[in-house]
Amino acid sequence: MARRTVLAASSVAVTAVGVGSAFAATDGTTVSNEDTAAASASASEGACYTLTSELVEGPYYIDADKLRQDVTEDQEGIPLLLTLKVIDAETCKPLRNAAVDIWHCNASGIYSGYEEMGSGGGGTPPTGEPPTDAPTGTPTGPPPGGGGGHQEPTDDTRYLRGTWHTDRHGHVTFRTVFPGWYQGRCVHIHVKVHVDGEWTDAGYEGGHTCHTGQLFFDEKSVLLSAEVEPYASNTTTRTTLDEDTIYPDNGHAGGLLYLKYDRHHIARGVRGRLTLGVEPDETNNG
């Protein structure tokens, strides 16, 4: 990566209705202890934390043109407060001033910047009778699961995308909504970590990408979200976490988030968190 620039979205008004009070409830929540469950690595390997899995970038990445923590814009859905901690997996030292990108689909399975692609690149859900004519031409573009090469944006929308810097403790927090799903993929959020660049008045410049991964949600939380609008109106067949072909099936090291929410009222909001153990000297573009 020769150079990358993040432009601040100074004219974009972003809101997350109810987020301020969405996480007050504690009765019936699910809570995990990340510190005792995830910080495991072999001492003989010279590491103090499990290295987070590198995964595919997917076709819908746009090089960080929104410098912000609240990426919600006008998207409806369950409020999600996402906190990530980025550390050097070998030394366990936090990475300060790293640039972290997140991007994901909305409740209907649509990515901003690619609305013409329909639900996750699979096109608009079919309606009416199936076609009877013989197919013609050669298929183009990524498969419905979204695992193909990078695609150029089809429009100027940028909801549910954003970039922000880690603090001196390696933490970065985003306000967004619980993602929906689309054909061929389980519920997930994409993430990148960039280091060795410089924050300027224009944004983040230079450096390299040391981590490209995805963040995942357990089935219990997804099933609860599916009972809430607008997720309940998503008629696309859902791929479960176990069925997903990209999730590496290695728990939190593979991007499985720790979640906290009221299981009786998940619509009030969800808190998600995870520590990303990365190799800052490596380049992982996904």
Score class of each variant (00 low, 15 high):
185 R>D: 00
86 V>I: 15
206 G>K: 04
102 I>F: 05
8 A>C: 13
223 L>I: 06
70 D>E: 02
38 A>L: 03
111 Y>N: 01
218 D>H: 13
28 G>D: 05
268 R>F: 13
16 A>V: 13
165 H>W: 09
17 V>N: 00
124 T>P: 12
170 G>W: 03
5 T>F: 08
64 A>C: 05
168 R>D: 15
216 F>N: 01
154 T>Q: 12
70 D>T: 01
237 T>Y: 02
189 I>A: 06
13 A>D: 07
259 L>H: 03
230 P>C: 13
219 E>P: 07
233 S>M: 12
262 D>M: 11
96 R>D: 12
234 N>S: 03
78 I>K: 04
81 L>W: 14
74 D>G: 11
119 S>T: 14
41 A>F: 06
89 A>D: 08
138 T>S: 10
97 N>L: 14
205 E>C: 02
217 F>T: 03
16 A>E: 11
122 G>R: 01
220 K>T: 14
97 N>P: 02
63 D>G: 01
126 P>S: 15
10 S>L: 05
251 G>S: 14
97 N>I: 07
15 T>Y: 11
106 N>I: 02
139 P>E: 13
89 A>Q: 11
115 E>L: 08
152 E>F: 11
39 A>L: 03
61 Y>N: 06
221 S>Q: 12
170 G>A: 10
263 R>E: 13
132 T>V: 13
232 A>Y: 08
281 D>Y: 12
280 P>M: 05
32 S>A: 12
220 K>W: 05
77 G>H: 11
195 V>N: 05
255 G>W: 04
125 P>T: 10
228 V>I: 15
143 P>N: 10
253 A>K: 04
138 T>W: 05
97 N>A: 09
3 R>V: 07
62 I>A: 06
114 Y>P: 08
35 D>S: 08
179 P>F: 00
269 G>M: 05
104 H>I: 05
163 T>Q: 11
165 H>L: 14
161 R>Q: 13
75 Q>M: 09
196 D>P: 00
156 D>N: 03
51 L>I: 03
173 T>A: 14
138 T>L: 14
224 L>F: 01
142 P>Y: 08
243 E>W: 00
160 L>M: 14
239 T>A: 03
91 T>W: 10
125 P>Y: 12
186 C>Q: 00
36 T>R: 09
281 D>F: 02
83 T>R: 11
168 R>T: 14
284 N>H: 13
160 L>Y: 11
26 T>M: 06
166 T>E: 02
15 T>I: 12
220 K>A: 15
38 A>I: 09
73 E>H: 14
159 Y>W: 15
76 E>L: 15
121 G>R: 07
212 T>Q: 15
144 P>G: 04
96 R>V: 11
207 G>H: 03
173 T>R: 11
80 L>K: 04
187 V>I: 02
256 L>I: 07
100 V>C: 09
3 R>Y: 07
201 D>P: 00
74 D>H: 06
267 A>S: 11
152 E>V: 04
100 V>L: 02
18 G>K: 02
194 H>P: 00
285 N>K: 10
159 Y>M: 05
229 E>D: 08
94 P>F: 01
249 D>E: 12
69 Q>S: 09
13 A>I: 13
40 S>L: 08
114 Y>H: 14
3 R>H: 12
242 D>T: 03
